[in-house]
């Protein structure tokens, strides 16, 4: 039986979930570097961590998601992402990636119901600029 996946805090502002790395950039932005396949378990742990961070951080939160090293995400995981994006404490979600694969992956997340608080970018700078706008 595979060990259960749990998020781990590795420093004051850094966490891991499997290979994924989650960092608090400032008090209003969470940076997620998605690495490898995103399963239902990953999504469940990301949700737990978000709920913890959302309860600790003041005001609304932005998410900056790097998909350059991400694998596919499961349908259930995408459902969880959608819930998080729709969370009342979520302000904006910027997803970025240089490769065509990242664009496709992002389409499966950003394309959800034509949400206006989520956008795809081909580089980190544009993504951050949009979040700060």
């Amino acid at each position: 039986m595979a060990p259960q996946l749990c998020y781990k805090q590795i420093s004051e502002k850094e966490f891991t979930i499997g290979e994924n790395r989650i960092t608090l950039l400032d008090n209003s932005t969470i940076y997620i570097e998605a690495i490898g396949e995103q399963t239902d378990e990953h999504a469940r742990e990301i949700l737990k961590l978000y709920q913890k961070l959302y309860s600790e951080l003041p005001g609304k939160i932005n998410q900056l998601v790097n998909l350059d090293r991400s694998g596919k995400s499961s349908p259930k995981a995408r459902q969880v992402y959608e819930e998080m994006n729709n969370h009342e404490s979520t302000h904006k979600v910027a997803v970025y990636g240089i490769h065509p694969v990242a664009r496709v992956l992002a389409a499966f997340v950003t394309g959800i119901k034509g949400k206006k608080n989520i956008e795809f970018f081909t580089n980190k700078e544009d993504a951050m600029a949009w979040l700060k706008k």
């Binding site: 694998g71 596919k72 490769h99 694969v101 664009r103």
Partner: peptide, 12 residues
């Protein structure tokens, strides 16, 4: 991670 991989990932 090229276009063919993107297509494959999308199909998957």
């Amino acid at each position: 991670n090229d276009k063919l991989d993107a297509l494959a990932m999308g199909i998957n």
